Simulated assay, not measured.
Amino acid sequence: MTMSIDVSEEAASVIRVTVAGELTTVTVNGLRTAVAGAIGGRPRAVIVDLDRVTFLDSSGIGSLIAGRHLADAHALEYRVVNARDHVRWVLNVSGVWSYLAGDDPD
């Protein structure tokens, strides 16, 4: 299982964490570390982009929710965007998409 993560500043004080590959038990620690690092920099917002994620399991969902909880604890905006196909379906069926996506209509 492979996963890659790119962390970049998208705009003033907005950090985008772009994930590619499979988000599973084996790979979630990378996402948790990236999100915690981004939040530790005290941006205004953290955006987790799932456009290139091809699969996620319950551990992946848990890591996305943990990121949201961490951001909430620091009073930062946190949104998950661009979930596609199977990934979007899993997040919808599990009932967490609207919680993670915030106001993003994607």
Rank of each mutant, 00 (worst) to 15 (best):
A38I: 07
D6L: 11
G62K: 01
L91M: 08
T24G: 03
V80N: 07
D85S: 15
L100A: 07
E10H: 14
A12E: 14
S4V: 08
N29T: 14
T24M: 05
G60R: 00
A12F: 12
N29M: 07
R79M: 06
A34V: 00
W89C: 00
A66G: 07
V93R: 14
G21E: 08
S63K: 03
F55C: 04
I5A: 10
V46R: 05
V35H: 06
V26C: 02
T18A: 15
E77T: 15
T24A: 01
S58V: 09
T25E: 12
E9W: 14
S58D: 05
P43Y: 14
I65R: 02
F55S: 06
S59D: 09
A75M: 06
S59M: 13
R32E: 10
H74P: 02
V53P: 08
R32I: 13
D51H: 12
G21L: 06
A38Q: 04
S58Q: 03
V26F: 15
M3V: 09
N29V: 03
G37A: 02
L76G: 06
A20Y: 06
L64I: 06
V28Q: 10
V35N: 02
G41E: 15
D51I: 04
D106I: 03
M3S: 11
L91Q: 01
R44G: 09
A83C: 07
A75S: 13
D57V: 00
A45M: 10
R32K: 13
S94G: 11
L56T: 05
V53K: 01
M3H: 12
S98P: 07
I61C: 00
A38F: 09
H86A: 13
T27E: 07
S8D: 14
T25K: 08
V35E: 05
V19D: 09
A71K: 07
G37Q: 04
R32N: 11
I15F: 12
A73L: 03
W97D: 09
S58P: 04
